[in-house]
Design a binder for these strands. Structure first.
Lengths: 165, 165
DNA sequence: CACTTGTTTCACACAAGTGTGAAAGTTCGT
DNA sequence: ACGAACTTTCACACTTGTGTGAAACAAGTG
């Protein structure tokens, strides 16, 4: 079968879509492009030049993006001795980690709502009760997250055992 | 006890915090301020003038914010006959609705990942397999969301029955 | 019908984020 | 040490979002 055929144009569109989507979440656009270019690459790692070529952007843009991505540990920089080119590799499941990290926003939200509830005069007031409800909801969801993610890991493991290969 | 005492300064800080937090999610800042001012208000509804006063912003800013919020059905405009002032009321649990709506982003993410997987040549390739894994994860989480929210409704109902008022 | 109060629209200023080209800096090969 | 390949830094232009003041508009009141 032809399952190894890459549709480069479609992949570029995919990268751009994802970068925009992540961008809406406050993630730097160019960093998003780099992440998904790496993700869409069959190679284990790419050089800055590769990235610039595939994306059609300046070397400067890549430089900024990988600096950011290294900082937040989404890519690792692999310096190959005897080669002037640094290579960049995606940390395994980094998109998963980022997703989980974003979930901590719920805790922040819950805490802020709690502050508001207290400032509004506690649950005895209309506003206080409303804000306490909000706090409770976000805390509750936040608490369930670890369980949810564990379930995913389990199901994935089960599926793998069922059809191993 | 003093549970009906409002700390106006703290509430202003709360409103500003929330507006910023929502802002990071791509939600217009001023609209966020209006939502949380309404949420932090003991009154059922506020006029545009009230909102402008409490927030210390121009009437124009309020006008734009409520137009947006009405559009996405987060506030309702109540026109009281015999009064020039329109009143704005928060739709019940609108923050909850917004949260749920945001979850649909997961579906979008999953779909895009699926596109990418196909374009990369399917699960037989390194990139294809990686992207398919991403697609599966977001689809899975998306699928569990309704269940999760049902659980919240149940627990809330149970808690209410246990200590009713 | 004029007056007053309240709301909306519009042009503008201001700030933040984004990507570029060019210059400077770094690292390897000879 | 020199030159070539590669990367980083920096000043700039461009775009987008945000809020303001002023003027236009709308609706009730005397």
């Amino acid at each position: 079968m032809e399952s190894h055929m890459r549709d480069e144009a479609a992949l570029r569109a995919f990268v751009e879509d994802m970068a925009r989507l992540l961008g809406d979440w406050g993630f730097p656009r160019m960093a998003g492009r780099v992440v998904f270019t790496l993700m869409a690459a069959d190679e284990r790692s790419l050089s800055a030049g590769d990235l610039a070529d595939r994306l059609g952007v300046s070397a400067a843009a890549i430089s900024g993006a990988v600096r950011y991505l290294s900082h937040i540990s989404m890519v690792v920089r692999e310096h190959v001795p005897g080669d002037r080119r640094d290579r960049y590799r995606l940390v395994d499941d980094s998109w998963y980690e980022v997703t989980v990290a974003k979930m901590t926003l719920l805790k922040t939200l819950a805490d802020a709502a709690g502050e508001g509830a207290a400032a509004a005069g506690g649950a005895g007031t209309t506003a206080g009760a409303r804000l306490a409800g909000m706090r409770d909801f976000y805390n509750w969801v936040q608490d369930r997250m670890p369980t949810l993610l564990d379930q995913w890991a389990e199901e994935k493991a089960a599926a793998k055992a069922e059809s191993p290969g």
